[in-house]
Amino acid sequence: MTDTKFQIVPPPADAPMPTVWSERIRGTTETALDCESAASLACHLSGSFTRAKSWADLVIALAKRGFGLQFEDTRLVLVNDNTGMSLCTCASIGHSFASLMARLGKPSVQADSHRVIVRPQA
Rank of each mutant, 00 (worst) to 15 (best):
H114N: 15
V20C: 02
S22D: 04
V20A: 11
L58S: 04
C43F: 06
V9P: 01
S86D: 10
V59R: 00
D34C: 03
A98H: 05
V109S: 11
S54I: 00
V59N: 01
L45D: 00
A42D: 00
A122T: 14
G27Y: 11
H44Q: 12
V118W: 03
T4G: 03
P11C: 04
E72K: 10
W55K: 05
A61D: 13
S92Y: 05
M85Q: 15
S108H: 14
M101E: 14
S46F: 08
S96G: 10
R103E: 08
S54P: 02
D14Y: 06
L33T: 01
V20Y: 01
M1E: 13
S86R: 07
D57S: 06
F67H: 03
Q70D: 02
K5A: 12
S108D: 08
C90S: 10
A38K: 05
Q121R: 14
Q121H: 11
L87V: 15
S22K: 01
A32G: 15
G27R: 12
R119F: 06
N80S: 13
A56K: 13
S99R: 09
P107S: 11
P11Y: 09
L45Q: 00
W55N: 04
R26Q: 10
D57Y: 01
D57K: 00
R119S: 10
L45P: 02
A102P: 00
A39K: 05
R115M: 11
E72Y: 12
E36V: 05
R51V: 04
D14K: 09
I93N: 05
T4F: 12
I117M: 09
C35I: 12
S99V: 07
R115K: 13
L45W: 02
G27P: 09
A102G: 02
L100Y: 06
S92E: 09
F67Y: 14
T19M: 02
M17A: 15
Q110L: 14
Q70H: 10
Q70R: 15
S108C: 14
P10W: 04
C90Q: 03
A98C: 05
A56C: 10
C43E: 12
H44M: 05
A32M: 08
H44F: 10
T29I: 05
G84Y: 09
I117V: 15
D112I: 07
H114K: 14
S113Q: 08
F49P: 02
T28I: 10
V20M: 02
V109T: 14
V20F: 03
L104W: 05
R75S: 15
G47H: 09
F71A: 04
A56R: 11
C90G: 02
A39S: 06
A52M: 00
I8M: 07
Q110F: 12
C43D: 14
K5F: 15
S99H: 03
M17D: 12
R103V: 07
P120K: 00
C90T: 13
V9A: 06
P16Q: 05
T50N: 11
S99E: 09
Q121E: 13
P10N: 09
A102R: 07
C88I: 04
A61G: 08
T4Y: 11
A52G: 00
